[in-house]
Structure formats: structure tokens, C-alpha cells
């Protein structure tokens, strides 16, 4: 499989009164065709900032200061406004967390679909637009006769499905989903993600999926990148990130969710609070909260590098490969 998106050394800054705050720092990753890549991390770690950068949605005070984003070989940071307008929605579309705030409350679903078609010159008449919109609604299991309803007439889960139908309207190559189900119930969340997976299999688009729920991500994604305060700290196939975490932060994140089955253990989560990006330390950003930190961690910043045996990880002391199996003891002893 070839790469659809290639992000190299991306940096995004926010200009504040206190100076520049680097929200995304030197991040590189790629998304293959037909792949689902997950980005996980706590709030404020820069995962949504990356999603916005991929569509170039940033407005001042945010700015993409360094790096390149290659989409099908073309750097989207060089796009003119007109190229960008065509690129958005037709090549990449995005589903946001709050469906209610991305639908216009005073327009029917039909006219919002028509706006998309009209802006990209794909239909000539309203009837043709309605016809295509109905097909799209059927794909996401919404009765086509509801096309003429207003957003407030739908429930939260249905609204999110309408937004997904809109995002797929022009058959994009990449679908970015920024916490699409955080506001929804578990049952609805599962129905929606199952639907997206089916559609992905059918149309073959790639997905960038952003959430903080690691167990959900493991079920849904092919590969997962873990972010911590603006840095990508580990990238691994999804099944390995919980079973064989390399970075202590991935381990801690995996250990923050109580299990539904098996024996209950006292859990610790991750001690401390997320890093304040105004005061970035010299060494590893996670050192303060890490149970495995050494002197080296406090002075040298680890780089994300590919190790034959380990995959991509940015840590001076990656955890042993079968750490979990060796450490049957509860993680409280590690701290």
C-alpha cells in the first residue's frame, strides 16, 4: 500500500502574549491508502491541532511554522486559496466532535447538502442534488424522506450520521474524524463506528481517527500514534499498543481504563498533571510523570526513531517487549 498522506516535521505554533507556544512539535507520520490511523492522547496534546493542520483550517493566532504535508505527493501548504477550496471536502473531509454546531440550525439538511454540491459544481439542479443526498442518507441508515428536516429534529446520533454522510458526499480520499463520538452514548458510538468501518471497506478511503479512548481505538484502528504535549511518542500497530507498550506514557494510558472482565486491580493512572506548554523542560516532556525516568531523561530530549525490534518510539528507556507478561504485579508497585 502506498502513502496517501505524508506529514514531515510538522510544527504548529500559537502566538500568545507570552510568546510562541509550540502546540505540535516536529511530528512526522504517514497514512496509507485505505488505512485507519488513530491519534490518541490527553486534551491539549495537539491531536486536534494536527487534524486542523491537515485541512489547513488554522487561523491566526495559530500558524503552521515548519514542515510539509504531502497529500498524494503535493504539498498542501503551497496550495492557493482556490486550490485549497477544491481540496477541502473533495479530497479530505472532516467530522467534528459536536454535530449540532457543524450543521446550520436554520437550514434543512437538503439545502446543506446542496451547498456542498454547488460549491464543487457536481450537480446542476436542486433535484439532482436531492437525489444524491437521499442516496447518501440511505448509506448511513437514515430514511431518505427525512432530507427535508431541520437539524434539531434529529437525535444526537442521527445528526452525527448526517454529518458523516455529508463528509462522504464527494467521495474524499481521507476522512478526518475528530472525537466524533465523544458526546454520544456507548451504544450509538458503536453503531456509528461500525457503519464508518463498513463504508471504509466499500469506498476504500483512509481515516484519521482522533480520540482519547484507547480501548475504542484499538478496536477500530490499524495503527495508533500516541501523543504527549505536542510530540508523537510512539507509533505502533493497534494490537501491540496495549499488549506491548514501549513508551511509559502509552503504558500509563492503557492502564487508565478499568476492565470489564477479568480480575479487578487497583489502578494508578498517571500521576501528576499534563505539561504546561509555556514551560517546556529540556529533557523528555514526560519525565516528570514517568516511573522509569533517569538523569538522562531530564537533560536529553529523546527523538522518535525506528528500531527494528521495537518500532517507532521516542524514549531513552523503552519498556521491555513482554513487559506486561513479566509484570503480573499491579502497576502500583511500579510507581
Amino acid at each position: 500500500m502506498s502513502d496517501l498522506v505524508q506529514v514531515n516535521n510538522l510544527c504548529v505554533d500559537y502566538i500568545t502574549f507570552g510568546g510562541r507556544v509550540r502546540a505540535v512539535d516536529d511530528v512526522s507520520f504517514s497514512i496509507k491508502k485505505g488505512e485507519i490511523l488513530g491519534l490518541a492522547g490527553e486534551s491539549g496534546c495537539g491531536k486536534s491541532t494536527i487534524a486542523f493542520a491537515l485541512m489547513r483550517l488554522h487561523r491566526p493566532p495559530a500558524l503552521i511554522s515548519e514542515g510539509e504535508i504531502l497529500f498524494d505527493g503535493k504539498d498542501i501548504l503551497d496550495f492557493s486559496d482556490e486550490e485549497l477550496r477544491k481540496f477541502r471536502w473533495a479530497d479530505t473531509s472532516m467530522v467534528f466532535q459536536s454535530a449540532m454546531s457543524c450543521l446550520n440550525p436554520v437550514k434543512t439538511i437538503e439545502s446543506q447538502f446542496y451547498d456542498i454540491f454547488e460549491a464543487h459544481n457536481v450537480v446542476s439542479t436542486k433535484e439532482e442534488g436531492a437525489e444524491r443526498a437521499k442516496e447518501l442518507l440511505q448509506i448511513v441508515d437514515i430514511p431518505p424522506e427525512r432530507l427535508y428536516d431541520y437539524p434539531h429534529q434529529f437525535s444526537g446520533g442521527m445528526r452525527q450520521r448526517v454529518v458523516i454522510a455529508m463528509a462522504l458526499a464527494l467521495k474524499p480520499k481521507l476522512l478526518i474524524m475528530d472525537e466524533p463520538t465523544t458526546a454520544l452514548d456507548v451504544v450509538v458510538q458503536r453503531e456509528i463506528l461500525q457503519k464508518v468501518y463498513e463504508l471504509k471497506e466499500e469506498f476504500g478511503f483512509s481515516v484519521l481517527f482522533i480520540t482519547h479512548d484507547l480501548s475504542l481505538m484499538v478496536e477500530f484502528c490499524d495503527r495508533i500514534g500516541i501523543m504527549y504535549s505536542g510530540k508523537l511518542v510512539e507509533v505502533a500497530p493497534s494490537k501491540e499498543i496495549l499488549g506491548k507498550p514501549q513508551h511509559p506514557y502509552s503504558f500509563g494510558l492503557g492502564n487508565s481504563f478499568p476492565t470489564l472482565h477479568g480480575e479487578l486491580q487497583e489502578m494508578i493512572g498517571i500521576p501528576g498533571s499534563p505539561l504546561d506548554l509555556n514551560h517546556v523542560p529540556d529533557g523528555c516532556r514526560f519525565a516528570e510523570r514517568c516511573f522509569n525516568a533517569s538523569e538522562q531523561c531530564r537533560t536529553d530530549e529523546p527523538q522518535l526513531r525506528n528500531d527494528e525490534a521495537r518500532g517507532w518510539v521516542a524514549c531513552h528507556h523503552p519498556l521491555a517487549i513482554d513487559f506486561r507478561e513479566l509484570q503480573d504485579a499491579p502497576c502500583s508497585e511500579l510507581n
Binding site: D141, G157, M158, V186, V187, V188, Q189, R190, E191, L193, Q194, Y197, D213, L214, S215, L216, V218, E219, F220, K239, L242, L260, H261
Partner: peptide, 19 residues
């Protein structure tokens, strides 16, 4: 059945009538 569980796959059918 709807609770995310890393040991399962996303394809597992939910025991309910649709949406």
C-alpha cells in the same frame, strides 16, 4: 456489548434492532 474492549473487533454485531 457496546463498551469498547480491546480484545474484540469492531465488527461484532450488537444484540439489538437497528438504531
Amino acid at each position: 456489548a457496546a463498551v469498547p474492549d480491546p480484545k474484540r473487533s469492531i465488527h461484532q454485531k450488537l444484540p439489538t434492532h437497528r438504531a
